[in-house]
């Protein structure tokens, strides 16, 4: 894994679905070591921006730089050391439907052989407990309620102990107690230095209150404001 110390777009253009350009020729240095709220109108490209930061969407022009390295030019294998330090919580599911909650959480650890089976089991069990997923750990995603699905998605994004966490609407469908649990958990991990940079797309004021330390706005589909 490679430490992530800086994130920036240089002359980057990002296209969403159906080739629609959301960001054109953008230069932006992302604030680091913060809990950042990504704000903007619906359809202004917040999720697209998060996906680009995770390397899931490549700029159609310009580049995405981590630690000054243009990672958008790297192959899948070349980007892997960075990717393993990035956690991504999807807005719409993303849990592997043929695997149980436990298997979903254990998958990246087992695939990348990041620990013996016992270590993986204990790490996953600890995350499952932290997120209150113990009762549903053996269930498949189709059997879960939306709040459990959401919690499982966020839990999985943390399983590799990433420095950079990107959460796309992590609280949709969650009750107040779960929202507070998630906010406390993120604050706790940030204060202990387990997470360095957190970027969140959310419209839940109650969740963001006291959590976000910084704000970025995506506006007019073209500009990023710090």
């Amino acid at each position: 894994m490679i430490d992530i110390n800086s994130l920036a777009f240089r002359a980057a253009s990002l296209q969403g679905g159906q080739g629609r350009t959301h960001f054109d020729n953008v230069d932006f240095e992302f604030p680091c070591n913060e809990i950042v709220l990504l704000d903007g109108d619906a359809g202004s490209g917040k999720s697209l921006l998060l996906k680009a930061m995770a390397g899931l969407v490549l700029p159609s022009a310009g580049g995405y730089f981590i630690n000054g390295v243009n990672v958008s030019q790297l192959s899948f294998a070349g980007f892997l050391p960075y990717r393993l330090n990035i956690g991504y919580g999807f807005e719409h599911g993303g849990l592997i439907s043929s695997k149980s909650v436990y298997e979903n959480l254990a998958l990246p650890l087992l695939y990348h052989q990041l620990g013996a089976e016992e270590e993986v089991a204990s790490k996953v069990a600890s995350l499952i407990e932290q997120f209150g997923l113990t009762a549903v750990k053996d269930l498949y995603p189709a059997e879960l309620s939306s709040s459990y699905k959401r919690l499982a998605v966020v839990a999985r994004s943390l399983v590799l102990d990433p420095q950079l966490l990107l959460l796309d609407h992590p609280t949709t469908g969650l009750g107040n107690a779960d929202r507070l649990l998630l906010a406390d958990l993120l604050k706790d991990k940030k204060s202990r230095g387990e997470l360095k940079h957190i970027f969140i797309v959310s419209r839940q004021e109650a969740f963001l209150d006291g959590l976000a330390t910084c704000r970025i706005e995506t506006n007019n589909h073209t500009v990023l404001k710090g």
Binding site: R83, L84, I86, H92, G93, G94, I96, S97, P108, L160
Partner: peptide, 18 residues
Amino acid sequence: GNMRANGEIEALQAMGIN
């Protein structure tokens, strides 16, 4: 096809799984 539609393929990529 269902994995693509559910975003599972994208999720695999996000976890560094080719």
